[in-house]
């Protein structure tokens, strides 16, 4: 019986070593620099998508809300710009009397500097503009945006359409 006990003990120890080893393998592969870079990329992409649709969605009846949302999803240059022209922009939006909704059809990160916390993203956006008194129009546009990482996650620091002949 003793021999069985010894064999069983050896078996248990071998299995313990195996479990510890594979646990380590799992941990290290899940925490590699590659996978954290990939996670940063996905994070930036998601924030970019949300940010763009935030920016390209507006309702002339809820301008204050829209502007606040824009401020919340932007940082740096873009935020400063919005903040500066807030009043004229507001008037413009109210006068336009239209409701715009947008969704990102596809997007991809073109560049990512994880250390600096900056990224660029391109996106295909479908926007539907509905004037207060008129037919709605759907258009598909392409955008280039720059993202900067802040304490509250990635935010847009630049946003512009990519027109033909750029």
């Amino acid at each position: 019986m003793r021999i069985f006990t010894a064999l069983a003990a050896v078996f248990a120890v071998v299995m313990l070593v195996f479990a510890v080893f594979s646990g380590f393998v799992w941990y290290s592969s899940a925490h590699s620099s590659e996978s954290s870079f990939a996670a940063a990329r996905d994070d930036a992409l998601r924030s970019g998508q949300v940010g763009i649709s935030n920016f390209l969605t507006l309702d002339y009846q809820k301008v204050d809300e829209d502007l606040q949302r824009w401020l919340n999803s932007s940082t740096g240059e873009l935020r400063a710009e919005i903040d500066k022209d807030k009043d004229s922009r507001k008037k413009q939006l109210v006068d336009a009397k239209s409701v715009t909704t947008s969704k990102v059809l596809d997007s991809a990160i073109t560049e990512l500097d994880d250390r600096a916390g900056t990224a660029s993203m391109i996106a295909v956006v479908e926007s539907t503009v509905t004037p207060a008194d008129g037919q709605k129009v759907t258009k598909i546009n392409r955008y280039l945006t720059k993202l900067t990482r802040t304490e509250d996650g990635w935010k847009l620091s630049q946003l512009g359409p990519l027109r033909a002949g750029v």
Partner: peptide, 9 residues
Amino acid sequence: LPVALVVVG
């Protein structure tokens, strides 16, 4: 004892 060890293993 051996059985327990095997199970644990």
